[in-house]
């Protein structure tokens, strides 16, 4: 179970989350997104970058509400809502966006 990026082999778990978080690169994100059938544009990248910054500071992905608030600030209220997040990441901003951003999967009743 691995992604191939620029000749490198990056291990991932059964669900496609990379196992070594430091393996992440932008090129890898594109590869994961392709596997997830997500076509990355600047808005996807904005979300992914926010997730990575947040994770850097707090060692966990942000609550969906916190993410949406941040998106609202940068992209405006018509995009800063749950519905738009699901348009960007059909399998959910918490799980799918985290996967592309190279973060571990949120666990628990979520």
């Amino acid at each position: 179970m691995s992604y191939e990026v620029n000749g490198a082999t990056i291990e991932h778990d059964e669900e496609g989350y990379i196992t070594t978080l430091s393996d992440w690169t932008k090129d890898l994100a594109d590869v994961i997104a392709k596997a997830e059938e997500v076509d990355m544009n600047s808005e996807h990248w904005e979300v992914v970058n926010f997730l990575r910054d947040y994770y850097e500071e707090y060692q966990i992905a942000p609550a969906v509400r916190v993410l949406i608030k941040a998106v609202k600030k940068s992209m405006g209220p018509e995009k800063g809502n749950n519905k738009y997040m699901y348009e960007l990441f059909p399998y959910g901003p918490a799980k799918q966006a985290c996967k592309i951003a190279g973060l571990p999967k949120p666990t628990g009743c979520v």
């Binding site: 966990i60 949120p106 666990t107 009743c109």
Partner: peptide, 12 residues
């Protein structure tokens, strides 16, 4: 269950 540390909990 989430693995939410104190710092993140407080921020949230």
């Amino acid at each position: 269950n989430l693995g939410l540390q104190e710092k993140a909990l407080r921020a949230t």
